[in-house]
Design a protein around this nucleic acid. Structure first.
Lengths: 104, 104
DNA sequence: ATAACACATAAGTCTATGCTTATGTATGTG
DNA sequence: CACATACATAAGCATAGACTTATGTGTTAT
């Protein structure tokens, strides 16, 4: 029990966008604010929440803080959803099939 | 865009327990209250939220409402997490490996 | 040394949401 | 018919959480 609810962490849309950006690049807190109508402290707090959940990692360099995604942080979610795949209709087993479905 | 945020829906621990119970059995709203210190309207509301998200289905029979899980409702979550598996360390690819990791 | 910068923390506000009790609606039962 | 049961909806409250401005801490630049 980490005491942190990953579902609550990911329930915030801003945090999900942040995570998406950090999946491919390493960015500073200021870089990340671009595109958001959000104050610096607000972003700082979101990053703290994501970090506490193990979803991002931080690299300090002077006065800059570089963040990037920590994919292993999604393991609890992966684990959670995996338990339900036993009941899964086989057609949504693969991403390919899922995308086909979504096109309809 | 369904307008419903599945992450917010699943962010509530009570709703996750409800979902877990409904994965294996079909139960009525009253049955589901067992084990929860929760009022009948509160449970009714949770069920409405889960239903709106497509996570459970309802079968009416007289004055009873039987609920059960609708696994396809998890497809959006499956889809979301799948996008990150590209960045995934291979060791958390399978549930077996994940469980091994969690034992440590 | 002073100032600018990058970020974190603190304090206070506002809204979302989960809860309660009260009431409504439909379906059964004596 | 009257009454109980199963569930939904309404109204109001209380807490959680996302936001703001103000301030603090450490680092680089002039």
């Amino acid at each position: 029990m980490s005491g942190i609810d990953i579902f609550k962490v990911l329930a915030d849309p801003t945090r999900r966008v942040v995570l998406e950006r950090l999946a491919t690049t390493e960015l500073t807190a200021t870089d990340l604010r671009e595109g958001f109508a959000i104050s610096q402290p607000a972003m700082s707090h979101h990053l703290a929440v994501l970090r506490a959940a193990g979803l991002i990692s931080e690299r300090r360099e002077g006065r800059f803080a570089y963040y990037r995604m920590a994919p292993e942080g999604l393991a609890p979610l992966h684990y959670w959803i995996a338990r339900y795949k036993a009941f899964w209709p086989s057609r949504i087993d693969s991403l390919k099939d899922l995308l086909k479905e979504m096109d309809q």
